[in-house]
Design a protein around this nucleic acid. Structure first.
Lengths: 201, 201
DNA sequence: GTTGCATGCAAGCAGGTACTTGCTTAGCTT
DNA sequence: AAGCTAAGCAAGTACCTGCTTGCATGCAAC
């Protein structure tokens, strides 16, 4: 088959899946959206399930997370930048993530496809908090293990729930900064101590 | 109709909906699960949509949140107790919440039904953080507005995502305590200052 | 120019879905 | 005993779903 055809189909399938979930995504609709005959889907992918899974794998977790610096210098700014990017990525995948979680009982592979990027983000973030501690930005007795969890929780909750209950969230423009700041304070980071500590080193 | 019949149907519908979502919940299956003839569903509720919505309203948000004290005395203990209860409630409704969010494009009423308890929880929690500040437990310049958001985010993320990626969470038994402690520190609460402050007052 | 190959097209199959209709049955009220 | 009502039952309608089959078409390689 030609590659553009295959690509068209996968893109359409991913889009429709994010909108309607597995049961709501009909092969007829995918074919029409991809401007392709329905039979072609089955010739290329064999079954609806195989098609959707492939679409999730190839069009699921797209944007690479903004990298966190190896040597922390301005934790609040660095975390804010990272959180801004992560929030955007999560928001873009919101629909697919939700549908995949709902379809877990149908096929446990789906939520794994949709959340495969999250684990990597966790590792990167947790490593960064360890670096913060080693560099003396936060005290050694802090719950640095769970700081990464807390920040990601804030971003996840924001991305998933803001569309259905806007009132309880910080303004969208400030959200990432607020979460970064709160998370840092949760593990004992003091904005003023930072510069002082940094001058000494 | 008899009340037990109506109740059986609604309970079965709520259970099946949480498992399979709107499209995956067939009227046949509901009838069978409720041990009732399928025609009865339509005679009582008129349509599948009306039935499911009624089921979500009556069997959606069940457990009342543990109340937070009017006069804070031991913030960490009180918040931990509250968070423990809230986590349990969220976990019990996890499936229905996820399905309802996925079915939002089908009927925007559904996610509202499923999250109607959350707003109340927010208000209660936010009011408690205000009381904490007024009582001098946390400094006045803190982001107390968003502390409630942060704690609920942690609980929400825990309840929704732990089943699909266990590794990144605190042990289930400690989770509520960890979230409460981190959230308090995020707004400047110092565990040791607490007792001292309390002795003075 | 013939041979493959990818794709389109029309039709259909078997099963499932929400919902309806017409009729029967059982229990309660008066 | 008569009447009302909630519920069961069997059957059916109209439509949708994933998926298949048989055949025609265009294009590119050899």
């Amino acid at each position: 088959m030609s590659i553009p055809t295959r690509e068209q189909i996968l893109a359409a399938a991913a889009r429709l899946y994010a909108e309607h979930g597995f049961r709501g995504t009909t092969t007829r609709a995918v074919a029409e959206a991809a401007d392709v005959n329905e039979v072609t889907l089955f010739r290329i992918f064999g079954s609806k399930e195989a098609l959707i899974l492939e679409a999730m794998r190839t069009h699921g977790v797209a944007a690479e997370a903004h990298a966190l610096p190896d040597v922390p210098q301005d934790p609040e700014a660095e975390l804010t930048a990272w959180a801004t990017q992560a929030r955007k990525t999560l928001l873009a995948q919101r629909s697919m993530i939700i549908q995949a979680m709902g379809d877990a009982e149908l096929n446990p592979e789906m939520p794994k496809c949709a959340s495969q990027g999250a684990e990597a983000a966790y590792d990167a973030l947790r490593a960064y908090f360890v670096r913060l501690r080693d560099a003396g930005f936060v005290p050694g007795d802090a719950d640095a293990r769970f700081a990464a969890n807390l920040l990601i929780a804030a971003l996840f909750h924001d991305a998933m729930s803001r569309p259905v209950m806007t009132a309880v969230f910080p303004p969208a423009a400030e959200a990432a900064a607020v979460y970064a700041r709160l998370t840092l304070r949760a593990v004992g980071f003091e904005p003023r101590a930072r510069r002082a500590r940094h001058r000494v080193s």
